[in-house]
Design a binder for these strands. Structure first.
Length: 560
RNA sequence: GUCCCCGUAGCUCAGAUGGAUAGAGCGACUGCCUCCUAAGCAGUAGGCCCCAGGUUCGAGUCCUGGCGGGGACGCCA
């Protein structure tokens, strides 16, 4: 590929000047007047060679002159090297894209290694909320980016199916159950008060009738707990399915106790000699590993803190062969990061294991006002309600289009808007109109896909065409960067920019602008070349949307 | 009090290892459909990149100290 060729040539030329192994960039400049590619290499070498950047640039330019596929090289600004490529070189990108098709954009960073992405991990105490939604979209997109980068990805959902929160849920269901049978039993303080609790109580009553009436015994409470947990997990799975998110495994906390992992973890930690007893509790010297203070593992009442199963859980990830793990969590969990890593370091795992992507909270606005409440959940808006209202495509895109660590304001008015203001539709629409070109090319001229593949792309010499092609050629680089940074929003940015350029290109052939520039002209060679561009752009937009888990429609039907 | 994140156009936000005149969408304003879907395009206006120092040939980006907003600092999960 020509980018590598130029990059290699620059590296060689730098070595000849006595600066081997220098770091530099070769990228597409923002301003098209700066050529198809530009490098800062002369600037980067200036201090090392103790020469003026422009002087070095001139020297490099002379060494690189005559490079195949390059039309000319300019020295510009403070010492940039601007490369202007021959039209055939630029157009060549299109053939590579058309040939790779659905695989265009993939790389082999992971070279088949295993990696786990843990996300959502909601406790079964209520319906999923918008924070979970953001996490579902983020985790799934990060997982997908990693797959596109050659990793073997495992998606896991961890949930706490025991413990105090779950007992509060069980007690809340019990109260509603007894209430439905006419008993005046109040929902406990700190209990769950959403309508869904009463719904579960109703389902329970349909199933068991009055069997637990007045029964305050532990056995009844246990079975009510199990029933409620099963119901809520079921609901969460349905909500995730509607959001098109699927997991390889749902891992329950109780499994860690049942198979002895928690007990084994206590033993293993004791063996390190880093534990001690104080005030009746068992502590671990996590402060040795960068935690702010030591942490309690086992409380004075003999029960473990959350910390212990968490360490046990991550050891299980390691032992299951996941030596690379990305945990997607809300920023409110950030205090647990240091302590879990410290616990794992005590057991010999490397610092920085596992990796975390922490995201900020989500708020919803309608008409400029914050929307807070949900009928079913009582105190928050649920993911299911949002998806029902705006659809999975829009919801996913909106959750992904901001950096995880930035606060997200979900604008419902914008999400529901079926116009150019809505970035999702802008991207999908660009894809759909490209598909339409192929449909019409077939109808009107009998052109098949092979026409684009055989096209002479050097005919594409308009500035806008060159710009679109260079943008398409950058796609694999963007995906790689987004995967490495665990940053799906970079893909959104890329897609919006690409869609804008594609639309701009498309409109340049509008009848009132320049009919000669339309795609479906009678000149067969020209039409083929333009279809090659359209086909490549369709592939890029389609693949980009696929990475994000968003559909790429071949046709946009305007809603009522 | 300690730690983490954020602070860029009226609004919501991008700005990869420091590089050319700081970008996009929305909102505002002006244009563009007898002909490939106007869910679009072309253009105009709008900036002390929170402040102050520092490093550098060069800082929105790195360092220090402030200010403002959010979050976390439990033998809670």
């Amino acid at each position: 590929m020509f980018v590598e060729r130029i990059s290699d040539a620059l590296r060689e030329a730098a070595a000849e000047l006595g600066a081997a192994g220098a770091g530099f960039r070769l990228e597409r400049p923002k301003d098209t007047s700066h050529g198809d590619l530009a490098s800062n290499i002369a600037l980067a070498l200036a201090s090392r060679l103790r020469r003026a950047p422009r002087d070095i640039a001139q020297d490099l330019k002379e060494r690189l002159d005559g490079l195949e596929g390059v039309d000319r090289i300019d020295v510009a600004g403070p010492g940039f090297l601007n490369f202007f490529l021959e039209a055939a070189t630029v157009g060549g990108s299109l053939h590579r894209i058309l040939a790779a098709a659905g695989a265009y954009g993939r790389n082999d960073d992971g070279s088949g290694r295993r990696i786990m992405v843990e996300f959502v991990s909601a406790n079964p105490t209520g319906p999923l909320h918008l924070g979970h939604g953001r996490q579902a979209a983020l985790g799934d997109a990060i997982a997908s980016l990693l797959e596109w980068s050659g990793w073997q990805v495992y998606r896991e959902f961890y949930f706490n199916d025991a413990g105090a929160q779950i007992m509060r849920l069980a007690e809340s269901v019990r109260a509603r159950y007894q209430q439905s049978l006419g008993h005046d039993i109040p929902v406990p303080e700190n209990g769950y008060r959403g309508d869904y609790v009463a719904e579960i109580a109703d389902l329970l009553r349909q199933k068991v009738g009055r069997r637990y009436e007045g029964d305050q015994g532990g056995a009844a409470l246990q079975s009510m707990r199990d029933f409620a947990v099963a119901e809520l997990r079921d609901e969460q799975k349905k909500d995730l399915a509607a959001f098109r998110v699927h997991f390889d495994e749902y891992y329950p906390e109780t499994r860690l106790y049942d198979d002895g992992r928690v007990a084994a973890t206590i033993e293993a930690l004791d063996d390190t000699g880093l534990t001690y007893r104080s005030d009746g509790a068992a502590w671990l010297r996590t402060s040795r590993f960068g935690d702010q203070k030591d942490r309690v593992m086992v409380k004075s009442d003999g029960s473990p803190t959350y910390f212990l199963p968490d360490v046990a859980y991550h050891m299980s990830k390691w032992e299951r062969g996941f030596h690379e793990v990305v945990n997607v969590q809300g920023a409110d969990h950030h205090s647990t990061v240091d302590r879990v890593r410290a616990g794992l370091q005590a057991l010999g795992r490397r610092p920085g294991y596992p990796e975390y992507v922490l995201h900020q909270m989500v708020t919803v606005e309608r008409g400029g006002e914050e929307v807070r409440f949900s009928k079913r959940a009582g105190s928050y808006t649920t993911l299911a309600e949002l998806v029902a209202e705006v659809g999975a495509d829009v919801a996913r895109y909106f959750f992904l289009m901001r950096r995880p660590e930035a606060h997200l304001t979900f604008d419902l008015d914008l999400a529901l808007d079926q116009s150019d203001r809505n970035p999702v539709y802008k991207v999908q629409y660009a894809h759909a109109r490209l598909c339409r070109l192929f449909e019409l090319a077939g109808d009107q001229y009998g052109d098949g896909p092979d026409v684009a593949e055989a096209a002479d792309t050097s005919l594409l010499d308009a500035p806008i065409e060159r710009e679109v092609i260079n943008q398409l050629a950058e796609f694999p680089d963007f995906l790689r960067r987004a995967a490495r940074a665990r940053a799906p929003h970079l893909v959104c940015d890329y897609l919006e920019k690409t869609a804008g350029l594609v639309n701009s290109w498309y409109q340049s052939g509008h009848p009132t602008r320049d009919p000669a520039r339309r795609t479906l002209v009678s000149d067969g060679a020209l039409r083929a070349a333009r279809l090659a561009l359209a086909g490549a752009a369709r592939i890029v937009l389609g693949n980009g949307l696929a990475v994000l888990g968003i559909t790429a429609p071949e046709r946009m039907e305007r809603g009522a």
